[in-house]
Structures are given as structure tokens and as C-alpha cells.
């Protein structure tokens, strides 16, 4: 089965971890993830500048490893990201901001990517909240 997974919560929210465990279970179960799409506060789950204390789960790091390990299509909504200060190098330069906090494997793109993923997938599963 093909899944599109959308995340609406930052890496410190329990639902970000839940989304990751669900995504891992889809891959482990032999299913396909057609795209991960991070929207609203979910853009923070893709930030490369989250520093977790050593004895706590580094969820943003786990997300990055998961995406890289499975070579997934991972999209962060550009409008939601700009509004929340999540920028890649190109956007940081475009808007004259001093730092970038989004890097490969994440790509910034528009909401059309969410709809495209939902059309390609057998199921769209969204995660957010507590």
C-alpha cells in the first residue's frame, strides 16, 4: 500500500514521534511512502538547528536519518516554513537572513505537493496535536 504522511507538529510534540514510528512501521511492513509533507508547525520537525539534551530523543535528527536511509521524498511547505523561520540557504539569502536551518534531504515546496501526494497514495495519514 502507498502512504502519504503529513506532519503538522514540531519535533518536541508527541505526535511528531508518533508520525515517525508510524512511518517506520509502514516501511518495515513492506509498504511505500510516496511522500512526507511537513506543514504548519510540522516544519520545525525538519529543522537542522534543534539541539536535544544528550539524554533525550533527538527527533529532528531521527527524522533526517529516516528520510536519508530510505531515500524518501520529503517536502516542507515553503509558505509555512518561511513564516516560522525555517529557511534553507537559498531562502536565507533571498530574504537577507543570517542563517539557514533547513538542508538536504528536505526540500521546500508548495502545498500542491501535498495534493499530489494524496492523489498518488492509497492513504493520506496526518499527524498533529498531542
Amino acid at each position: 500500500m502507498k502512504f502519504a504522511i503529513a506532519l503538522f507538529a514540531p519535533s518536541h510534540a508527541p505526535s511528531s514521534r508518533r508520525a515517525l514510528r508510524f512511518a517506520q512501521a509502514t516501511v518495515d511492513g513492506g509498504h511505500e511512502i510516496v511522500r512526507l509533507f511537513f506543514y504548519q508547525d510540522g516544519v520545525h520537525s525538519a529543522s537542522s538547528n534543534v539541539v536535544s539534551p544528550q539524554d533525550e530523543l533527538d527527533l529532528a535528527g531521527e527524522w533526517r536519518n529516516f528520510v536519508q536511509q530510505h531515500n524518501l521524498d520529503a517536502v516542507v511547505c515553503i509558505a509555512a516554513a518561511l513564516r516560522r523561520g525555517v529557511l534553507n540557504a537559498e531562502e536565507a539569502q533571498r530574504y537577507g537572513r543570517p542563517a539557514a536551518n533547513l538542508d538536504a534531504p528536505w526540500e521546500l515546496s508548495g502545498l500542491g505537493q501535498l495534493h499530489e501526494a494524496a492523489q498518488m497514495a492509497d492513504r493520506l495519514v496526518c499527524f498533529g496535536g498531542q
Binding site: Q40, A79, H115
Partner: peptide
């Protein structure tokens, strides 16, 4: 906050693709 507008944006974006 922005989430109400962002929910609406999902609809507008989908409409633009004739979904």
C-alpha cells in the same frame, strides 16, 4: 494564529489543481 488560514490554503491549493 495562522492555522485557520493555512487550512483554507489547502483548499485553495487543491482548487487550483481542479481537484
Amino acid at each position: 494564529g495562522p492555522s485557520t488560514r493555512e487550512a483554507l490554503d489547502i483548499a485553495l491549493a487543491g482548487g487550483a489543481f481542479d481537484l
